[in-house]
Design a protein around this nucleic acid. Sequence first.
DNA 1: CTCGTTGTATAGAGCGCTCTACTAATTGAT
DNA 2: ATCAATTAGTAGAGCGCTCTATACAACGAG
Lengths: 326, 326
Amino acid sequence: MDDVAAKAGVSRALVSLVMRDSPRVSDNSRAKVLQAAQDLGYRPNAWARNLASGQTNTIGVMLNDLHNPYFTELAEGVAAAAAEAGMEVLITSGWQRESGEHTAIDTLLNLRTDGIVVGAARFSSEVFEEIAQQTPTVAVAYFHEHDSMDTVCNHEAHGSELVVEHLTSLGHTRIAHIDAGNAPGAPERRRGFMTAMTLRGLAPIVFDGDFNEHAGHHAAEQLMQLNEPPTAIFAANDLSATGVLAHLRSIGVRVPDDVSVVGYDDTVLAGLGALSLTTVHQPRQLFGQRATELLLERISGRSAAKHELIEPRLVTRSSTGPVNES
Amino acid sequence: MDDVAAKAGVSRALVSLVMRDSPRVSDNSRAKVLQAAQDLGYRPNAWARNLASGQTNTIGVMLNDLHNPYFTELAEGVAAAAAEAGMEVLITSGWQRESGEHTAIDTLLNLRTDGIVVGAARFSSEVFEEIAQQTPTVAVAYFHEHDSMDTVCNHEAHGSELVVEHLTSLGHTRIAHIDAGNAPGAPERRRGFMTAMTLRGLAPIVFDGDFNEHAGHHAAEQLMQLNEPPTAIFAANDLSATGVLAHLRSIGVRVPDDVSVVGYDDTVLAGLGALSLTTVHQPRQLFGQRATELLLERISGRSAAKHELIEPRLVTRSSTGPVNES
DNA sequence: CTCGTTGTATAGAGCGCTCTACTAATTGAT
DNA sequence: ATCAATTAGTAGAGCGCTCTATACAACGAG
């Protein structure tokens, strides 16, 4: 910076002003400084800048798992909202291990980013509390309602409600849900299903499962061996639904003619022509955007916690159809 | 830090030593300092630390597109290798737009990370050159051979060779390739296919396509209308192959009984039971690891460029079978 | 009893920037 | 001509840390 100042024949402070696009610089000097910076290949050192200014203009994003499209779309929403607010985004990932998540959060905390968006970490309530005390924090897809941080969640139960609504309107009454135990979001989906069924006077059939293809395959196998197999199967997520589809196909059951299948998440899988799965769409980018907006509010002073529930939407494709009791 | 020093009754410098795990501190003082830091909730400020020490102990990763599993697995490899070397990892993404990539790289450059791993950016050769001049750089899946930076690439052509080898060993001779124009990697895959076919005295059938489902669908439609349709279709990637599968299914052509289908990349799609696609597997995590190793070598002084080509592997699933000329 | 030696701890400069407070020059209203 | 107001630029302290040089015990060796 000194070099640039010297070359342009001005003070260091002026260079600083130019680099920050201050309006209190004459066009003349601005041009000189920019030219000198260009010639010297100067670029401001972010560490020094942030240290001196006391703010980083950066928001940190910690993601549980970069492989999961859920999180990357979330990050995309954050990036979009942050860009709009003129802030930078730095991402760290826990790579699915809790120790990794701690490292990732520590990195961000040491960096003193203006705030942190946490995508569904495995942290205990206490750890979250601790983080939220050190910096503005918004958790996405994490259900406990701390008052030290904001949260943005999908209204999981409502998604299940939409599915039951859709299937019953097609005439289905024997509907089975393949759940995913206590995995994040699964209990809410299951409860939503049971409530919606009960409300309609229907018996909720629930089968143990998981968020993967194998679980769907296995559960479908068992379900189809019942005396009265269900006419519709609602899997806890798309991957599981894919397993269901694979099994049904292998035993010659037609979809949706004989059995309707529904997933959850609307991942890229669901949209594939070869699967064309009816599923529950979560506006994942919107999650990121809202999270960032909440974070910015926090950063500029709000102290009362906000907890948002975002409504999912049903996407109807060709894996569901009218019931066929033949 | 001053507060911690005061509370522990020692100098600021000693606190610094403790925070850096220096061996030249007595157990007694170390305990005192650690206790004081704990009580005060002190955590070192990374910006100040890096500014003062002149090194960041961090490597930056710039990814073209976080949604693409290719890149996230790459990042995972980087993270693993970096963790082993005791370095932190910071990720930025260009979100598929070139302007975004520039911002992302600038963020990293301003951060003065010790080095940068770039995952297949759309940058021109000159831009790459410019980046490499400012900091140690390794490009992954980028084919130009600069001598100012290292590269790690998949041996794309060899993957195609493996596919042709596999198909011809099953008796196929009319093999079509659906390519992806000039998209990154596509020309190499196409050339590899053509070479391998020609070498066996077979006519390479190449069809225009792209790296998406629709392209595969469309190309398959055209291919099957030929007087002598191919008995095997090799798509430029898994997504495209999925489109092929969807079309074949829709017109009642059985896979692999009537036509064999092969993809490229071995994404999660290929492994799904409902698709079970034979495909070319790229060791993406290995790319990240090698890239990081090369980067660390660069950081510690190597100046001659290294360019590595990594061998892919064929994964045989149930979308390919013996030719059936009926 | 002095001297190097080793193990601990400290002072204080400096990393590259921003920010506050100030000066100098220009303008325009009285 | 005078004075406040505005504009353009500068000096220098300070952000929170690391690092070099140095101090000071305590110790065994000469």
